[in-house]
Structures are given as C-alpha cells and as structure tokens.
Amino acid sequence: MIGALVTRAGSAVFTGLVGAVAYDGAKKAVRTGVVREGAVGAIAWGIRGKRVAEVGAEQVRLTTGDLVAEARARVGEQAPPPGDPTQAHDHAHDH
C-alpha cells in the first residue's frame, strides 16, 4: 500500500517537473521570437500559395474564354467584347 502511494506521488512529481520544464521552454521560445518567426513564415507560405492559386484560376478563366469564343466562331456567332453593355444581365427580376 505504501509502495503504491510512493509510486503515485513520484509519478505526480515527475509529471509536474516535466510540465514546468515544458512551460519554461515555451516561455523562452516566445521571448526569443521563435514562435513569432514560425507564425510569420507560415503566413508567408500561405500568401505565396494563394498567389499561385490566383494565377492558376486566371489562366483557367482566360482559356475558357478563348474556347467559348472559338466555339461561337464555329457556329457563326460573333463573341461580344468583354464588358459589352449590350449583353448586360436583364434586371427584370428580384435578386
């Protein structure tokens, strides 16, 4: 019985010691700017990824526009210029 109590107490002390060391390490990392540098680096990679995705989406949009214009030409239609107000959306309904 006493052996089990000593084992549990030793385990609690060890767990507390490990927690305290981890807490001190985290405090030191925050003070030295390691955490901030990591966060800034992760955000920078996210911005780069977003830019790559935007370029890809724009390329898809342009390619699709070219395909639609070519298809219209094949059936004898003239593709309207981009932003042509004569091709504007009919606003006879509620949005």
Results as ranks from 00 to 15, higher is better:
A53I: 03
Y23V: 11
G19R: 14
F14Y: 06
V34M: 14
D84P: 01
G76D: 09
H91V: 03
Y23L: 14
I2L: 10
A12D: 08
V52G: 02
G19P: 00
Y23W: 11
R72K: 09
D84Y: 00
W45P: 00
T15S: 06
D24T: 02
A73V: 06
G33L: 13
I2E: 08
V18D: 01
R36A: 11
R48H: 02
D66M: 04
I47Y: 01
V40I: 13
K50W: 03
T63V: 09
A20W: 03
V34F: 09
G10I: 03
G83T: 01
A44C: 03
L17D: 05
G25E: 11
G49A: 05
A79P: 08
A29M: 12
D66S: 10
G33N: 12
S11N: 12
I43G: 01
Y23E: 07
H91A: 08
V30I: 13
F14G: 01
S11E: 13
I2F: 02
S11P: 00
A29I: 02
G25P: 00
G83N: 10
G49E: 05
R61H: 03
E58P: 00
G65A: 13
L5R: 14
T7Q: 14
Y23M: 07
E37V: 13
A79T: 10
V18I: 09
K28E: 15
V35A: 07
T86S: 09
A4S: 05
T32C: 04
P80S: 12
R8H: 02
E58G: 01
P81W: 07
A79E: 14
P82L: 12
I2Q: 04
P81K: 13
V6R: 10
Q78M: 07
R31I: 07
A4L: 06
G10L: 03
A22I: 09
P80M: 10
